[in-house]
Amino acid sequence: MSHDTTKQASGGLDVAVLVSVGRHPLTARARRADHDARAVELALGLEAARVRLIHAGRNDPDSEAALRDYLGMGFASLTRIDQPAGADVLPALLEALREAAPQLLFTGSRAETGEGSGLLPYLLGEALGWPVVTGIAAVESVEGGTATLLQALPRGQRRRLRVRLPALISVDEAGPAPRQSAYGPARRGTLSAETRPAETDDALAGWTLEPARARPKRLKIVKASSARERFKAAAAKAEGGGGQVLTDVTPEQGAEAIFTLLKEEGVLRH
């Protein structure tokens, strides 16, 4: 039934995925974090790998429901390192990872709650002494202590990377779309709790975290050197309000107008 059991039989690669409790951007409901779920999906796509899930964080009903969403992707269990609210999970995670000693560690690129600075993968990599690669969209192969990966570049472009194992792979929205979380396995799976020493994150406690303010829209600053130009800028018609319609033009004129717009927007490649 579960992927991990089938994969365990064949032995081979040891893989761990760090998962966190996400938060829906509109409703703020707890859910599996998008990037983490993609990381899990990427790990599940590996041939002959033992995949285990590790989470460090608070133990409350909301997070349990979210963590079960990961189990619903086909796992029998998930290791939950219980940490109090406001704890710095890095020491506990490091300890757990040193014990588990996976060859590949997958993480999302940043958390959806709390500070969400995206520093954790690098901190782990630095502390464990592992190379960190980011924005990975696919794992092509893992052979002879080297993983061949595809890194996502803007506009859907890809770059091939080879990285020495053990390595840490962080996944963002370019990762593969996570599979559906099924209710049955999510309900059945077990969350095995581990207790590890917790350290409070004092720095974070001293900072203010508040709902995001809308950022001011940048105004078009007109460096006018004359009154006329200032007047023109002030009196310029606001953009929008019905676009330009070209009727009775030759295809070439029409194409020229479109071409100009595409150039202005900078979407044409050179």
């Binding site: 619903g72 992707m73 086909g74 599979r179 559906q180 979380s181 099924a182 209710y183 049955g184 396995p185």
Partner: peptide, 8 residues
């Protein structure tokens, strides 16, 4: 298919 396999 949906609840056990997650194959909607």
């Amino acid at each position: 298919l949906t609840l056990e396999r997650g194959e909607t």
